[in-house]
Computed example of a mutant assay.
Amino acid sequence: MLIPPFDEQSATEKVRMAEDAWNSREPRRVSQVYSPETRWRNRSECLQGREAAVAFLTRKWAKELDYRLIKELWAWQNDRLAVRFAYEWHDDSGNWFRSYGNENWRFGADGLMTERFACINDLPIAASERLFHWPLGRRPDDHPGLSELGL
């Protein structure tokens, strides 16, 4: 596990590890990188604790189908990372969206995330406007990131 203080390399690795976990769409797997008492704000929802994160992610991925995410490191200092991201998904009616956002993360000395604050906006897109084309799961290493896609 990568622990603070972060340098550019370890911060970039931490972000990619988070992206990979979220792209698994497995709430229990994702929750293991958060402290048991983690605090989150996601859009307008505030929650506390690893089990609350699991419940949140279970609800999220029941609604956001065929979810594919790309994260990119924005900045880092000691035990904090700033991340920008975009993900594509569709609802149960087949309407596609690209969701853009920023996250601020704080880590404990053990490398577990203690705080996650996310601001997210959803943009309706046509299926033909999708940019994230890979099989569900981990983004392939050769798939462009946010900057390469002009996002």
Rank of each mutant, 00 (worst) to 15 (best):
N104Q: 10
Y87H: 08
G49P: 06
K60N: 10
Q77W: 12
W74P: 00
F85K: 01
H90Y: 09
Y87G: 00
R106D: 01
L65M: 14
K60A: 15
E72I: 10
L81M: 08
A53V: 05
N78A: 13
G49W: 00
L69H: 11
R80F: 08
F56T: 01
R106G: 02
S99G: 13
R106M: 11
Q77C: 15
Y100P: 00
A55Y: 05
A52T: 11
N95F: 05
H90M: 08
D79C: 09
F97T: 01
L73Q: 12
A55P: 02
L81R: 04
D91H: 01
D91Q: 05
N102F: 06
R84D: 08
Q48M: 08
D66S: 07
I70E: 00
N95K: 06
F56G: 03
D79N: 15
D92Q: 02
G108T: 08
L73D: 09
I70K: 03
W76Q: 05
W76C: 07
V54G: 13
V83R: 04
L81G: 02
A82C: 14
N102R: 00
T58Y: 15
Y87A: 02
A86Q: 08
N78P: 03
W61E: 12
A53N: 04
R80D: 04
F85N: 03
N104M: 07
D66T: 02
V83Q: 06
W89R: 01
Y87Q: 02
W74S: 13
H90C: 10
Q48W: 03
F56H: 11
K63A: 14
L47V: 02
